[in-house]
Amino acid sequence: MAKPMTKTQLVAALADEMGGDKKTASSALDAIVSVITKEVSGGGAVTLPGVGKFYLRERPERMVRNPATGEQIKKEADKVVKVTVAKALKDAANG
């Protein structure tokens, strides 16, 4: 498995694709992340065409097991961010 792309590498690749400078690409990336964070943390969902859908899912209270001791404990209800990958990205990765 290849190493994940760092933010610096992503900004450089965006700048190349956009034909602009790294400062503009960095601002664009930060703005996209900010919009996604605000929308999802507020309970909404964001779809990036060709990439996937980011959304918030609530998990109910449940019993879990401590793997070190085997003890059953009650875990409070919480929220988790989920990502559903777009079919176009799956097809590109497999094909």
Results as ranks from 00 to 15, higher is better:
15 A>N: 03
60 P>I: 10
27 S>V: 11
27 S>R: 11
9 Q>G: 13
93 A>I: 12
48 L>T: 00
55 Y>V: 03
44 G>T: 12
22 K>N: 13
49 P>H: 08
64 V>E: 14
75 K>P: 03
71 E>P: 02
33 V>N: 04
32 I>K: 03
23 K>E: 11
21 D>M: 09
21 D>W: 00
36 I>G: 09
56 L>P: 03
42 G>C: 13
39 E>V: 14
1 M>V: 06
39 E>D: 14
76 E>N: 13
24 T>G: 03
74 K>I: 03
45 A>E: 15
10 L>I: 11
6 T>R: 08
10 L>P: 11
2 A>D: 04
21 D>I: 09
44 G>H: 07
3 K>R: 13
38 K>H: 13
76 E>S: 12
18 M>I: 08
89 L>Q: 07
51 V>G: 02
17 E>K: 09
73 I>H: 06
74 K>H: 05
44 G>D: 10
79 K>V: 02
23 K>N: 10
16 D>I: 01
81 V>Y: 01
61 E>T: 04
54 F>G: 00
53 K>C: 02
74 K>D: 04
63 M>R: 11
39 E>R: 06
64 V>M: 09
89 L>H: 07
68 A>E: 10
85 V>A: 07
15 A>E: 00
61 E>K: 12
34 S>L: 08
15 A>S: 01
15 A>W: 01
55 Y>S: 07
63 M>W: 12
11 V>L: 05
91 D>C: 09
29 L>A: 00
48 L>F: 01
24 T>Y: 07
60 P>M: 11
68 A>M: 14
38 K>G: 13
78 D>Q: 10
13 A>S: 12
51 V>M: 05
95 G>W: 05
16 D>E: 11
61 E>M: 07
90 K>F: 10
88 A>N: 08
69 T>Q: 04
65 R>N: 11
28 A>K: 01
46 V>C: 04
53 K>A: 02
18 M>K: 06
42 G>L: 06
76 E>G: 05
75 K>V: 12
17 E>Q: 08
88 A>L: 10
18 M>H: 06
51 V>S: 00
9 Q>T: 08
38 K>F: 07
89 L>Y: 01
28 A>Q: 01
67 P>N: 03
45 A>I: 06
25 A>N: 00
83 V>P: 02
14 L>Q: 03
38 K>T: 13
1 M>R: 06
31 A>M: 07
32 I>W: 03
28 A>H: 00
11 V>D: 09
44 G>Y: 11
71 E>V: 06
88 A>E: 15
90 K>S: 15
24 T>N: 06
53 K>R: 14
70 G>D: 12
12 A>M: 00
46 V>N: 03
73 I>P: 02
75 K>R: 10
41 S>Y: 14
23 K>Y: 05
47 T>N: 13
19 G>R: 07
79 K>H: 02
8 T>V: 09
19 G>V: 01
52 G>T: 15
91 D>W: 10
74 K>F: 01
54 F>L: 05
6 T>C: 11
2 A>M: 08
6 T>V: 08
50 G>V: 02
30 D>P: 00
45 A>T: 15
6 T>Q: 12
59 R>Q: 02
95 G>N: 14
75 K>F: 11
91 D>P: 04
20 G>T: 13
7 K>A: 10
5 M>V: 15
57 R>L: 06
35 V>Y: 15
22 K>S: 07
37 T>C: 09
93 A>F: 13
49 P>Y: 02
68 A>G: 07
42 G>I: 09
13 A>C: 09
55 Y>H: 06
69 T>S: 05
40 V>K: 04
56 L>M: 05
70 G>F: 12
